[in-house]
Design a protein around this nucleic acid. Structure first.
Lengths: 130, 130
DNA sequence: ATGATATATCGGAAATTACCGAAATATTAA
DNA sequence: TTAATATTTCGGTAATTTCCGATATATCAT
């Protein structure tokens, strides 16, 4: 990615969004698959997918395919990006981020990813049925 | 300002904009008045004013009134904002920012601020006349 | 007072972005 | 194969943001 002002603005835009910043901050605590992120944050999976696309475009996250799952993580910190460091450092002090990370631990203990999308769909159906 | 995720997103939005990021990075090299910023960056003065309003709202810049001039500067770095530090650290490596800062030195040597708005208006009139 | 300069706000059309359900694609299991 | 699950892309309206000229306000000089 070009090292010019426009490119930096695009990177900033990528995190100037509640969901995208939440996702990045969540991944700061460790790798997750897309469906786990959706389950932790309780948002539509398509929204998570779109958020991750932007974060990838901005060079903040990597992906790793494993079967039908896509695991995403923050790019390794080589000290090459003061911006990313600053964002993560500031984000970890936010209560929402702390809560999301606690919830991620629960989700992982519940032997998800195998069932998390299923869980989301069931929950949605429940809402409709009631 | 509240220390929640929404507030951090608002701060990020404030710099997710070419002009606003340029202004912040320019002020990182030292205090200037509004008209000097407009002269250095060669943009309408109202645009600079609006950019500064957002940067002030985000808590990135301070203002100091002196007569009819408003001098603006980056808030003192107390290490309390890793985000601001990261933004400035990343911005100083951009060629555009380097050029803007060099131009700021010229503008200050030309005994501006007293005449910089006048200069801008004259330049605009010139364009219209030709 | 009048004029000149600096700054802020306003208007409002154009461009951009957000949002999420639905549909498409991919991989695995039975 | 068919079914189930995970992910991405699409559609399309609503909401937001951008941009800058014009206008308003403030301060200083004469």
């Amino acid at each position: 990615m070009a090292n010019d002002l426009r490119a930096m603005v695009e990177r900033l835009k990528a995190v100037s969004h509640p969901l995208r910043l939440r996702v990045l901050a969540l991944l700061g605590a460790g790798e997750l698959c897309v469906c786990q992120v959706a389950e932790v944050l309780q948002v539509p999976q398509s929204s998570v997918s779109e958020a991750l696309r932007e974060l990838r475009r901005a060079g903040f996250v990597n992906e790793r395919k494993e079967g039908r799952w896509v695991f995403v993580s923050v790019v390794p910190q080589t000290g090459a990006s003061p911006l990313l460091e600053g964002i993560l450092a500031e984000a970890v002090s936010l209560v929402e981020v702390h809560q999301d990370r606690e919830r991620a631990v629960e989700v992982k203990l519940l032997s998800i990813p195998m069932v998390c999308c299923k869980v989301q769909k069931a929950a949605k159906a429940e809402v409709i049925r009631v």
